[in-house]
Design a protein around this nucleic acid. Structure first.
Lengths: 212, 212
DNA sequence: GAGATTTCTTGACAAGTGTCAAACAAAGTC
DNA sequence: GACTTTGTTTGACACTTGTCAAGAAATCTC
């Protein structure tokens, strides 16, 4: 897995200092993510990020080697927050229906409440096809998301007393297709998108299980 | 549907002239699409487009009001070429297996041979979430692609003697998820991606049909 | 072929970009 | 308190961007 410290190898090793640096970095990243989620990768400049934060544009360059380093850090920071979204539901659900309902609820919730982040993710994944510096991080996140979906599906199969009818990569691609459609649609017309997503997912989920 | 003439309302109405203008526009658009497919939306400038063409950057601005006008035209031009990709297969196939095989063949073929176009499409669809000037065109193409998938699926169901188990939008989202995964994966590692895609699609296709 | 019209080239502009470095402030060290 | 280290501001740089306008070239019209 990729370490989250990349541009700081040659910085002084005082422990408290590193902690402080790391905290500044996280603050910068959080601010940058807000701007990135709003404007997208193409239209976000370092100055815009700095303006929307409490820092000046020089500070950004003090804590990150260059733009890619910052964005890359943001992506890796983001991943740590997103791929564990459904863990609680998976762990606490005691029936297939409960798991399904919890999954759908969390899914539509994050669609609505974290729209900018999802927009950014699909944007960055597209960018990774053109900028190979982003590729490794994107692949890592995709892997995490795939595992997330797989945990849900295999647990669902277990509760229903069957087994998954497709492999993890396929299941992820299908679910992601539905979710991306919802995110894109939500950008144009927020009304009804969550319900449509929920309907489609609950329609598909049973088809990915073979009851033995 | 959106007309393909947008910035030329006030130009002289000589018929042969309009034709010539339109031909120049198409030439510009084709050249621009090549560059866009290579570099992506964010990194493509009007000058870059002009440099990779036989025209100068002034010509671009002579035929298109601004950058968005050009890109928008490109997108609309592109759509006319892509959404009829499987029509021949649908029309000539006489059995479900033949249709499935033909579909898979064309799908993997376009994945390999038109990679830049597909990359660009996913890029632009992501951009449309941030730039509402692109949104209408993207929605129109999405609609076309959805209908394309629906023609395949419903014909497939017909040949197999059943009917589709999901609606058009759902079917498109699922297929698109698989295809996008393949396109993104193909960018990082071309080897094996087409085969994986074919395997996954052929695994899913039957699950979208109810045999009555 | 002269004159008008369309097409294209060239060069310029203002604005914005990533990057960096020198001056300055703050904090820690002896 | 002087001095070094760490953090921050500010302003500048070289460059690219979209846009436009003035004029040259080509084409058409009579």
């Amino acid at each position: 897995m990729i370490a989250v410290a990349s541009a700081a190898e040659e910085r002084p090793a005082r422990v408290s200092g590193i902690d402080k640096i790391e905290r500044r970095r996280v603050a910068l990243a959080e601010s940058a993510l807000k701007t990135l989620g709003e404007l997208g990768y193409a239209r976000t400049s370092l100055r815009e990020i700095a303006n929307n934060s409490e820092f000046t544009h020089g500070v950004v360059h003090y804590y990150f080697r260059d733009k890619i380093d910052l964005i890359s850090y943001c992506v890796r920071y983001y991943k740590t927050k997103c791929a564990r979204r459904y863990d609680e539901v998976v762990e606490t659900a005691t029936s297939a229906d409960e798991l399904g309902a919890g999954f759908l609820a969390k899914m539509t919730q994050t669609l609505v409440e974290e729209t900018p982040m999802h927009r950014l993710w699909y944007d960055l994944r597209a960018q990774s096809m053109f900028e190979e510096q982003l590729r490794a991080d994107v692949i890592a996140i995709d892997q995490l998301l795939e595992e997330m979906i797989w945990r849900i599906l295999s647990r669902y199969a277990e509760l229903v007393g069957g087994e998954a009818a497709v492999d993890a990569a396929t299941a992820y691609a299908l679910m992601d297709g539905l979710f991306e459609q919802a995110v894109v649609g939500y950008a144009g017309d927020p009304a009804g998108a969550p319900e449509r997503l929920a309907g489609r997912v609950s329609q598909i989920l049973p088809k990915l299980i073979i009851t033995t």
